[in-house]
């Protein structure tokens, strides 16, 4: 990964120096080796801080939203999943392809800095040191799907036959068991909305959860409001989640949000597929649930 770091610095220096980009988004080291975090270089002298290591998990594509109304040209490093996030943003017309210089890194699989910090926090029973992040075990595309420059050797997908194993387990439950399962996980939601905030597909300018007139979803941490929040959030992800796993990773109470996203991925694929969100950019093509045709079936209405 040292080589990748050096290569990223070299590219960043070149782009910043030549004025080809105004900002270069990558990662830097935090206090500890495992605390790798996002970092945006603006000058050539910032470039030395950039690193790429096994903890460079943070999906930077979401940060592009901060610049969606600006003119800045942006360099950005992406792994496989992150690059799908960029397609999400381009398809959703949130950022223009021309403003981006995309440095793709074929991803060897990442560890989760948040997990590592938690393991060392003293706030949880001591856990065996975590290996590869869960989302990386479910990865269908570790290689960037859109880029201007590619670093590293091509990697193979890590998701196996068992990709939807957990989803199937839940589908096999009785209705009551399933209700109980969801009640258990949603009742612990503290409604911080971090899962929305870190999601690249959550790019609406005014989020339904922030609307006050009318207020669509109540703000109580009660089972009914929590269910409502998660139902609405989930349905907005259908055909749009690019499986970067950030929502689940950041959730302070570890709600298995990717399980819900995976159910939607599985269903969208079964009903409208074959389809994987953000896997290839074709100009003008929209995700299945983002377009409407007169002859769409509506007998369920």
């Amino acid at each position: 990964m040292k080589d990748i770091t050096l290569k990223i610095r070299e590219i960043a220096a070149r782009l910043l120096q030549s004025g080809q980009v105004d900002i270069f988004m990558g990662w830097e080291k935090g206090q500890e080796e495992y605390q790798t975090r996002p970092f945006f270089a603006r000058q050539e002298e910032d470039v030395e801080k950039l690193i790429f290591n096994e903890y460079s998990i943070h999906n930077l594509s979401n940060d592009l939203l901060k610049y969606r109304d600006g003119q800045e040209k942006i360099g950005i490093v992406v792994k496989g999943c992150d690059s799908r996030g960029i397609i999400r943003l381009i398809q959703d017309k949130q950022i223009e392809r021309e403003r981006l210089y995309i440095v793709g890194v074929a991803c060897p699989g990442m560890k989760d800095p948040l997990q590592a910090v938690k393991d060392n926090s003293g706030f949880f029973p001591t856990a065996a040191s975590a290996g590869l992040a869960k989302k990386c075990g479910d990865c269908i595309e570790p290689n960037p799907v859109i880029y201007d420059e590619l670093i590293g050797d091509k990697q193979s997908p890590r998701a196996g036959e068992e990709r939807f194993k957990l989803v199937k387990d839940i589908e096999d439950m009785s209705v009551d068991q399933r209700y109980q399962f969801f009640e258990d996980i949603f009742s612990r939601c503290i409604r911080c909305y971090a899962c929305r905030q870190v999601c690249v597909a959550c790019n609406c300018r005014t989020c339904i959860f922030d609307e006050m007139k009318p207020q669509w979803v109540g703000r109580e941490t009660s089972i009914s409001d929590n269910f409502m929040y998660h139902l609405v959030r989930a349905s907005h992800m259908a055909g749009r989640c690019i499986e970067c796993g950030e929502c689940e990773r950041v959730c302070p109470v570890n709600i298995p949000l990717m399980l819900i996203n995976q159910k939607l991925i599985k269903d969208v694929n079964a009903f409208f597929g074959p389809y994987e969100a953000g896997i290839g950019y074709v100009e003008g093509v929209k995700p299945p649930l983002s377009s409407y045709q007169e002859n769409d079936p509506d007998d369920f209405l």
Binding site: Q197, V198, G218, E220
Partner: peptide, 25 residues
């Protein structure tokens, strides 16, 4: 603030943050 995602986790897990909103059902 460059990389802050304004996700609010910090204020929710903070023992001393006390901001609240009053709402109605």
């Amino acid at each position: 603030a460059a990389t802050c995602q304004t996700c609010g986790i910090c204020t929710y897990v903070c023992p001393s943050c006390y901001c609240f909103d009053i709402q109605v059902k």
